[in-house]
């Protein structure tokens, strides 16, 4: 019985990993105050989703979808192609966010999100 569960888990190991990664990212994002760490967490979450997406198209023992003699089992190429786009988007997001972090540090002198909010709040009052 428990073997069966383990086997099922193993069969879905990619999905499982992506969920774990997602949770790690989400948790880090919520609990850490450092802006850089938040961005890293965001990237971990993105990676988790990419893994999930690519895993959809993966087939056990499948090959790259290039028509060669003797190759019968292909990996679905569409998710991989999509995720290339996804990665590009994620990189540009990160780059832009890092640029904003630099500016924030210039203006506030800290990378701690709570301190930034405190400084802003003081100014408002």
């Amino acid at each position: 019985m428990s073997m069966e569960i383990l086997e099922r888990l193993y069969g879905n190991i990619y999905y499982l990993t992506s969920v774990i990664l997602f949770v790690i990212g989400f948790h880090t994002m919520l609990t850490h105050r450092n802006l850089i760490k938040k961005l890293m967490a965001l990237n971990i979450m993105d990676t988790a989703i990419f893994l999930f997406f690519v895993a959809i198209g993966y087939r056990q023992g499948g090959q790259a979808p290039i028509l060669l003699p003797g190759v019968t089992s292909f990996v679905n190429p569409v998710p991989s192609a999509l995720i290339l786009t996804g990665i590009v988007i994620s990189v540009s997001f990160t780059a832009f966010a890092l640029a904003l972090v630099v500016l924030l540090y210039k203006h506030y002198g800290t990378l701690d999100s709570d301190e930034i909010i405190a400084i802003r709040g003081k100014k408002h009052v």
Partner: peptide, 11 residues
Amino acid sequence: KESIEASFRYL
């Protein structure tokens, strides 16, 4: 200052 902070949060 405010606009950068706001846009970061939005991002």
